[in-house]
Write a protein that binds this DNA or RNA. Structure first.
Lengths: 340, 340
DNA sequence: ATTGGCACTCATACTTTACGAGTGCTAAAC
DNA sequence: GTTTAGCACTCGTAAAGTATGAGTGCCAAT
């Protein structure tokens, strides 16, 4: 069992190592923190911590650095979420205050978060499932190409091009548009999706082909287009922290750009709206991100659709500060979207 | 004056240095290329090239590497644009073939180009000026918030949220929508912008406030929203080539993420549709990109709107291959957009 | 449980030495 | 005039040896 003081020592080690990037030794601890005991005592505590695999030595005779397990314990039990500084609060309000459309808000959000934390910030587009259909527009682009635009009541605009082998009949198109808006307008997406299936049957046979294709495309817009987009900012920060990675940051950069991996990871991590969940180091190994930590929090788009906002960085990061920033930004974002 | 053979030597040096990243010496040149002369002769040529500042020595007694001026000469006069390999052609067609909407096409384009060149690929959104208004949709999001959606005949969808201090009258909104579509539908953007100004005067006084705000917002959507967006892919490639930079790539990454700098740079470089323009090393110093080369070509969106597509990477890059790739992708992109 | 003392470890920095790729120059050959 | 062989010289890099010192682990005393 690890004593209370041992844990305090762990906290000190995490703190100092994050700040200095250098393995911290017993002597440095007694100097920088007021434990009121000697270095030898700290050494005993450190031996304990090492036995528990909470800290490790990069080489035989050097200071210790926290292990992933150490960070985990630190995050779960040793850090109290300190409130943001006044300057940080102010930054959030000015940065997100003057907001325009949805895309814009998410864009500002990631840039803000990456500035606050000096890490790569990420935000996921919320699923459309709880939004309501506000308007559907069908616009012919050419004889055989059609653009369907789906507008939701929370300001999202989703578009899609539909290709036909035979020319589109303007008349049929207008009827279909009216009909779609009449039937689907105001419905929640999930309900709209259900309604879509039955819709084709009522259409005059000669307009059947058109209707089928459009309905199919809309269905995909609503369903398949679930939570498959991320916005990112601050990739340069990954370069800045490059020395925290044992190898190259190339694979990490690739994973970030690929998005697919991150989306899976986001999916697996719970997106609690009132907490910040953290995934540390090797916990992300299966995603090729064994040396990075990801932290995220849920935010609610209107109607209670929940998506995630968070950040990614080297395992050695300022968890305390970053968690506070993620939490604050997530809350502010929810608030902002609820107002709109 | 530099002899013909000296230039051939420069070509060899550029080629070998780009391939190996190592300063190339006289001996290596006679080994790898069949000049039919001895190393000493090559040395004489190299002395000439050095006098002309086309090559330089990293340290007194080592091989030579091309200077920016050397690359410039190489690009302007020594490289012949080789056609792409069959595999590359194939990649372009399969990658861009199955295209959906405009955003999607540009997204695929950058990813493709970054894969072909192993550099950071960039593509600029074309201005809307020559596109035609296809449809304008005004959708109330709440009492005081309005979403205006502008759809062009080439499939672009631009959106904007407009905020009001007083509640929106649904009736007035419907009228305004009908009127806007009636007046602007089918007009080219530039003409539409002109028409907008006179439009407010004809509106009933009590709807004046609404109309003014909407017209103002639309004006901005059309005009201000000119060429201010870039899509990027392959940032990881910058990390891969990190060793080609003397310092950190951090500032370069920042510039790329900032976009503003790049957009200025894009603006200053000519966007010829039939050529690839290249800006090398110190030529970009004023943009904080003194160690990178940028190359781009124009592509035409429908109706002859021209924007740029290209790439960015370390000065030491395979200009020959990359120029071919940029040119091919730009052409294919133009063709694809013309068809659509 | 804590502490001072002390031997031991080992990464880092520094110096020295050796090596060799590559140049520049000169004088001879073509 | 151009090309070439020869050779002295430079200088970065790698290898090897040496010193330093931060930091540990352990033990016996408090």
């Amino acid at each position: 069992m690890v004593s209370e003081r041992s844990l305090a020592v762990l906290r000190a080690i995490v703190h100092d190592y994050v700040a200095s990037r250098e393995p911290v030794g017993s002597k440095a601890i007694v100097e920088r923190h007021s434990f009121g005991v000697s270095a030898a005592t700290i050494r005993n505590d450190m031996a304990l911590l090492e036995e528990e695999e909470l800290i490790a030595a990069p080489h035989t005779s050097s200071g210790r650095i926290p292990t992933d397990k150490g960070y985990r314990l630190f995050v779960d039990r040793l850090t109290d979420v300190k409130p943001l500084s006044a300057a940080q609060r102010h930054a959030i309000e000015t940065f997100l205050g003057a907001s325009a459309d949805f895309d814009d808000v998410l864009g500002r959000t990631v840039r803000l978060l990456s500035q606050l934390t000096h890490q790569v910030a990420l935000v996921q587009y919320p699923s459309l499932s709880r939004a309501r259909v506000r308007h559907i527009e069908l616009v012919g682009l050419s004889d055989t190409r059609l653009l369907s635009v789906l507008i939701t009541d929370n300001g999202r605009v989703e578009q899609r091009v539909i290709e036909f082998s035979t020319p589109i009949d303007e008349q049929q198109l207008a009827e279909l548009r009216t009909r779609l808006n009449g039937v689907l307008g105001g419905l929640a997406m999930t309900d709209a999706a259900e309604r879509l299936t039955g819709l084709v049957d009522d259409v005059a046979p000669d307009a059947r082909a058109l209707a089928t294709a459009v309905v199919h495309a809309l269905g995909e817009q609503v369903l398949a287009h679930r939570q498959d987009r991320l916005v990112m900012a601050g990739a340069a920060n990954l370069v800045r922290t490059e020395s925290d990675f044992s190898g190259s940051i190339f694979p990490v950069m690739e994973a970030i750009e690929e998005q697919v991996v991150l989306l899976r990871l986001f999916g697996e991590m719970a997106a609690d709206q009132n907490a910040v969940s953290v995934s540390i180091g090797r916990e992300n190994e299966s995603f090729g991100l064994g040396e990075t930590s990801i932290m995220l929090s849920g935010y609610s788009a209107s109607q209670g659709d929940i998506a995630s906002v968070g950040l990614l960085g080297p395992t050695r990061m300022d968890y305390s500060n970053n968690m506070a920033a993620v939490r604050a930004v997530a809350r502010y974002l929810s608030k902002l979207l609820a107002e709109g």
